[in-house]
Design a protein around this nucleic acid. Structure first.
Lengths: 374, 374
DNA sequence: CCCGAGCCTGACAACGTTGTCCAGGCTCTA
DNA sequence: TAGAGCCTGGACAACGTTGTCAGGCTCGGG
């Protein structure tokens, strides 16, 4: 009978909180069964094994593995042979312990599945790769506690740096980490109560320009559907909307603004309400890609044409009827800029934290140029 | 003057190849400047420091940090206080070294920025999280060498398991790793020359059904634009196309099939050619989401209506005119299934490698139901 | 023939944590 | 009151790697 009783017990990677529930660790017996004769699971060969087999010293193996000079070709050959034969692979955990640097950086974002974060994540990865570092990432699901949990787990892994798209608004918990030398850059939204590098889009200006665009095309009753105002980007975009309206001397009715979670159901209802209320809007400005997509669906089923400008570009926006006018931000540039700054922190090239704002771009495709249909 | 001469020298995370270029390691001096008085960069407090400050033994600190029983409330309080005061955070590298498990899994995919992989990646992350593990991921950019490099770097980090979307077609290099106990699951495409768990979509059946759908709507001259045939999914989808055509007794002209890299330029040209050739197609079956998007653009500028069925669902496909009929695969389910299987391997619940095939779903929205316009 | 220089090589400690094991003090019972 | 047993705490080794340092070898010059 196969011994398959052991179960996956990873290290507890949570924050070291003393939850003294008295759970006693089961004694760690051999965890793996011996399915391959001659090779025990989990018992990887070490440099010591290689050294023994090659008949050399430990340090010589280390030298060969790391390509350090000072090894005779003949000795090196013997070591390489032993490495091949045993299937040796250097244990980077031990290496990290010794060297201090892990050559990995952490990326905490809201949701990997969101099309906005894909390119951002990829850009960070590219830069990391160029610097020989790996990328560990996690989704906070827009939850401050989960963000903290993730960030601290990454710090426990001793990542060299962190790129964080903050969900919470208080990052003082990161102070000891930053002091201890963890390079940190916030992206998309600023950090809270802490002085750190920040790379953001010009959310205010972008939204203002988008709304101005609608105003320029004759709209006055313009709706705004955005994310929860506690999210910085959402607040900034709202401010852009308000400013554009104010600048144009248009008083804003409360019924034209809807802020909250951006799940399709709420957004759909919000859109319906501002389209059918006592002062129905003739145009809508949407606060992010998810909202835009939902509103497009609503408008597709709406009788009267309604103008639309959305924040964030969306794929195929040009092929819809009409094409969707958007305020586009460059997600890849955000990620790239942040990551590059991170590595400059690690270089020691960077002195003081800075706030970098990347411009947005209005892309007109038709939906924003519809005249008001009263 | 600030000492900013040190530069980021991460651990070399490449495969241990002896590139004896004789580069000598610069002596590692203190890397960080002392910007914060009283806190040296990189010198984090250890359990020893905490123990000293709390006036207890090293192991007692360990017990408190890990919530192990056997510590007086009073002692625990003192230790917690010291932890707070010093900003101590357990070093997981050392922990890993001692425990053997890293509580992290690796995910190697083609491109994080591809909308198909976002949900997949997210699903893997969710499962990992549920098992207390972190996710490290990297993009292979469809390059076999880069895939191997990434995978081995992850193994050097001693990830507990690997979810791999293979780019290469020979994975024998993974044998020692798997033997050493690294749980491994391949997704989306099977592994090459190696017996391992595989989770794939029914690419053949899906493509066959999609093409049958077009045939059922009266098409006979149907084009196929897909990825390089060395990619397994591409080959399977092509096989589905051929089978559907054959079953219907339709001879396939070479000019109707185009296989190769799926960059927009090539795809655009391929589509143009089969639309204007001597035997112009009346319908096109596209082999993945990128191809589909490009072909939609081509068809949008085409005079005569052409039917289209695409492999992979795409966002907003329902809002285009006409809606795009697709063969949808469930990326999240692929990721979830693979990850769950991975953790069952780690549990010891799983014995023999298996091949799991998830069904695809034909979603009709209009573009596939257009009659042939001759 | 001897000595110093230079090149290889390996012994050893250290990185920070956890498992093992033992000692001392306490409580409880006979 | 003594002995048994429990509870708390700490000393120590080990995990696999790398930096330091010293020893042994070869070679050439005096």
């Amino acid at each position: 009978m196969l011994d398959a009783t052991s179960s996956y017990k990873p290290m507890d990677s949570r924050i070291p909180v003393a939850d003294r529930t008295g759970h006693r660790n089961v004694p760690e017996t051999t965890r793996r069964t011996d399915r391959f004769p001659g090779t025990r699971y989990g018992n990887r060969p070490t440099m010591k094994d290689v050294a023994a087999r090659a008949g050399v010293g430990l340090k010589t193996v280390s030298r060969v593995v790391n390509g350090e000079p000072g090894v005779t070709p003949e000795t090196e050959r013997r070591v390489q042979e032993a490495i091949e034969a045993l299937g040796f692979r250097r244990n980077d955990s031990a290496r990290v312990l010794r060297k201090g640097r892990t050559a990995s950086i952490g990326l905490v974002l809201e949701d990997l599945a969101d099309p906005f974060y894909g390119p951002l994540s990829r850009a960070v990865e590219e830069v990391a790769r160029a610097h020989g570092a790996l990328l560990i990432n996690g989704s906070s699901a827009e939850d401050a506690d989960r963000e903290q949990e993730l960030v601290l787990a990454l710090c426990a892994r001793r990542v060299d740096g962190l790129v964080v798209i903050p969900a919470g608004d208080d990052h003082r918990y990161l102070e000891p980490e930053i002091k201890a030398g963890v390079a940190t850059v916030f992206v998309d939204r600023p950090a809270g109560h802490i002085d750190a590098d920040v790379v953001v889009s010009d959310n205010f200006g972008g939204a203002r320009d988008g709304v101005r665009h609608l105003i320029a095309h004759g709209h006055r009753r313009i709706g705004f559907i955005g994310d929860m105002p506690r999210i910085h980007t959402a607040a900034e975009r709202l401010r852009g909307y308000r400013t554009a309206m104010e600048d144009a001397g248009i008083p804003v009715a409360d019924a034209w603004m809807s802020l909250g979670v951006t799940d399709p159901e709420r957004v759909r209802r919000a859109a319906q309400e501002m389209l059918t209320g006592p002062e129905p809007v003739t145009a809508i400005f949407t606060g992010n890609n998810r909202v835009t997509v939902t509103v497009i669906r609503v408008l597709a089923g709406h009788a009267r044409p309604v103008a639309l400008v959305g924040f964030d570009d969306i794929e195929l926006a040009d092929l819809l009827q009409p094409g969707v006018t958007v305020v586009a931000q460059d997600a890849a540039a955000l990620g790239r800029t942040a990551a590059e700054r991170l590595f400059r922190q690690l270089d020691g090239t960077l002195i003081a934290p800075e706030r970098i704002e990347l411009p947005t771009r209005l892309i007109t495709r038709g939906s924003g140029e519809l005249p008001p249909a009263d």
